[in-house]
Amino acid sequence: MNANEFKEIVHNGLWKQNPGLVQLLGLCPLLAISNSLVNAVSLGLATTLVMTLSSASIAPVRSYVPNEIRIPVFVLIIAVLVTVVQYLMNAYMYGLYVVLGIFIPLIVTNCIVLARAESFASKNPPLASALDGFMMGLGLTAVLAVLGGVRELIGKGTLLSGIDLALGDGAKDWVIHVIPDYHGFLLAILPPGAFIGLGLLIAGKNWLNLRAEAKARSNPAPLSNEAVQG
């Protein structure tokens, strides 16, 4: 993996092929669990962990798996990893485990995990695959974090509520009451808020892209830069 490949994988995961904003894969957990910053980031990190490990373990065995049973084997590997993560959260982050509930085991069915296994890890060496899984997961986590943060801020007027579930009772004071005496805007926390919020985020990304394009057209970027983007 040379520097250019490295850059491209990072750029794809975080921005150009962002799972949450461009590929639009794995929307079920994205929409369901992004009702607070802590929930969103926790599920995002759990997914990132699974994606990194699954891509890293699928890539080295890719040449030993016959093509016909490729998908069952990938699913098996992903399911094992998710169950391991589930056990660990159940044991060491019980509060968060209860809050995230069904969405931890559902990481297995999150299409972005299998999609990266199938479209990247099954064709690339382990290190690049692990990086791809990690960056895709991080891209998803970033979208989840922004969506979760905005929904929590508008819905409840706080940030980081429930942080004690992830980091223990000591973290209770970390909760930021951004707007004191807030009435709460339930729409943001309820499912419609997720759809509206994600719609606005996608619109925002497209707007930034368009602006960047317009800028590039008015003063052409150097060629080397184009190559990386392409």
């Binding site: 030993y64 798996v65 016959p66 016909e68 049973i69 069952p72 084997v73 098996l76 590997i77 399911a79 094992v80 169950t83 391991v84 056990y87 660990l88 159940n90 044991a91 060491y92």
Partner: peptide, 29 residues
């Protein structure tokens, strides 16, 4: 048979990993 053996191999490894994790965590849980 080869394909089946291949799948069984991955299933055994997967089960082993799960059993180990369960053994490590079930008391804590």
């Amino acid at each position: 048979l080869q394909t089946a053996a291949n799948l069984v191999f991955f299933a055994i490894i997967g089960t082993a990993i799960l059993a180990a994790t369960y053994g490590m965590t079930h008391e804590v849980i």
